[in-house]
């Protein structure tokens, strides 16, 4: 079965079983997201993909596409709310873009540019989050974690290793690794695991690779994330 719905006044076709975000993406329309990944089921935690349907806010990554609905996404209201969600993520962790290896490669930073975030607005939390550099090939900088759980999911579902999990609750939630010592070196994590290569921000970094691509020549330095993402989605569709 298939049908179509309206996204910001334009028709988007969908196949049965597609979510609003999936159908939009397949039609070359971008809805911002951080925790969603095309190879995994929807997670629904970052809430950046929030849209409005019939006056109600929904996570478009998880909400099924339904015939005839009118979806609002690229409106001043939703852009402002997404910007505020990004501001929340920035004050929650310790994000120092100018000195971060991931700059230009970081989806959080790219979304902030995409949403014209000019300040953090809220007061910073400055949480203490020690770095784990124990592993020979990988360094974990927890300061930048946004809890998308992509590493958790990739390690569990693809790598079959369960290297990562979340512990704690609320604002004290944190990433843990699968070792009594709490050190990544004491797990079976490897640099070619999918989990080592899926972090949308700068938590999971490969050693001896720093700044191999110069700042200024990285994907989101050249083009906004919406265009990079749509190009990636298009290539998938072509294959």
């Amino acid at each position: 079965m298939s049908g179509q719905f309206q996204l910001d006044g334009q028709a988007v076709p969908f196949e049965d079983g597609q979510t609003i975000l999936q159908a939009a993406r397949a039609a070359g329309r971008y809805i911002p997201h951080l925790c969603w990944h095309p190879d995994f089921p929807p997670h629904g935690s970052c809430k950046l993909c929030v849209v409005k349907v019939g006056g109600r806010h929904l996570s478009s990554c998880a909400a099924p596409a339904v015939e005839g609905i009118e979806v609002e996404s690229d409106t001043a209201e939703l852009r402002a709310e997404r910007r505020a969600l990004l501001q929340m993520l920035f004050v929650e962790g310790n994000h120092f873009c100018p000195s971060c290896e991931k700059s230009g490669h970081c989806q959080l930073q790219a979304q902030a540019y995409e949403h014209e975030m000019m300040s953090a607005r809220f007061a910073y939390f400055y949480p203490p989050r020690p770095v784990d550099a124990s592993h020979p090939d990988i360094v974990l900088d927890f300061n930048r974690c946004i809890f998308c759980e992509l590493c958790v999911r990739a390690s569990r579902e693809v790598d079959g290793k369960n290297v990562f999990a979340l512990s704690g609750r609320g604002i004290h939630k944190h990433l843990v690794v699968n070792a009594e010592s709490g050190r990544l070196a004491d797990t079976d994590f490897a640099a070619d695991d999918l989990a080592a290569n899926i972090c949308p921000v700068g938590v999971i970094l490969h050693k001896r690779q720093g700044f191999r691509v110069p700042i200024g020549e990285r994907p989101y330095d050249a083009r906004p994330i919406s265009r990079v993402e749509l190009a990636a989605g298009g290539r998938e569709a072509d294959e």
């Binding site: 935690s45 970052c46 004050v91 946004i146 704690g168 004290h172 939630k173």
Partner: peptide, 15 residues
């Protein structure tokens, strides 16, 4: 009591 799953509640309740 926020479980910390979603961004607005995890951070917003503390803000």
């Amino acid at each position: 009591e926020s479980c910390g799953f979603c961004t607005p509640c995890r951070i917003g309740t503390t803000l």
